[in-house]
Amino acid sequence: MLGKTAGGLYWMFRYLERSENTTRLLDAGFRIAITRSSAAKNEWASVVTTAGVCEAYEQRHKVFEANAVIDFLLRDRANPSSVLSVVEAARDNARLVRTALTREVWEATNECWMTLTSVLQHPVLTKNLSDVLGTIRQQSALVRGALHGTMLRNDIYNFARLGTFIERADNTARILDVKYYVLLPSISYVGSSLDNVQWDSILRSVSGLRAYRWMHGGEVTPTGIADFLVLDGQMPRSLAFCHNKIHDNLGYLARNYDTRYPCNELADAMLARFRNITINAILDIGLHQYLEEFLLENNKLALQIERDFRFSE
């Protein structure tokens, strides 16, 4: 396979994953904003921060308010991470790697782009936000479904999956990092309704609220949430889950290519971060510090993958 093709597949699925994550963030942010109007401004600022586009936002807008944030995250082409920008980038990458995709995957991606450019042609009214976010998630899910249903489980598939999990791990870590203070033990807030809403919101932004309840009964605790998003082996958006997958995908490539690469070593080391450690130990180190380190390592691994498989010259 061409190095460029591997890179195209990887980025195609990173971008698709990003479009989904952005919609989840907006979903959770919007919910807080409508239920607790006094904290709304902070909430929108934190949504933009989590999306990692604060600087770009401040160049375009003075204040953090619903319509501006929604428009910036969904439609603004000046924001390289807006849904419209990333869906376009995903489709450009899909065109680049057209020969590596099944017809179904290509058509689903193309249809996703056609549908979303049409849906996002005009500013989205808050009363329509839910529907629009639903459509975005659905379109992305159709591509994923076509990938699972029709693609050979070969190196092509593994590069696509690597893009998904690197992006997802990055996203989950950033959600937690922006909100880590909400999870800190603090006498004045414990048990207050404010905490509960914030905690729900964290879970909502990874589509994990119901899953959490299944696993932990009705009891939502800061430690429980941190554990669920960092260490849980069944939660498909947890850091440990993503890095288990990355480890497996890279392991497949090493076997398939009959070579162990530097990225395999890094992936081993990443996995070790999650073994034999409890969430309490992580909280003792400091969640913020742990997540910052994680984000750096995740990024380092991503760059190593690009180098090892010659995505570019």
Partner: peptide, 11 residues
Amino acid sequence: DGRVAMRTTRG
């Protein structure tokens, strides 16, 4: 080496 070659994931 005197050939036109393409950059693949393996060289």
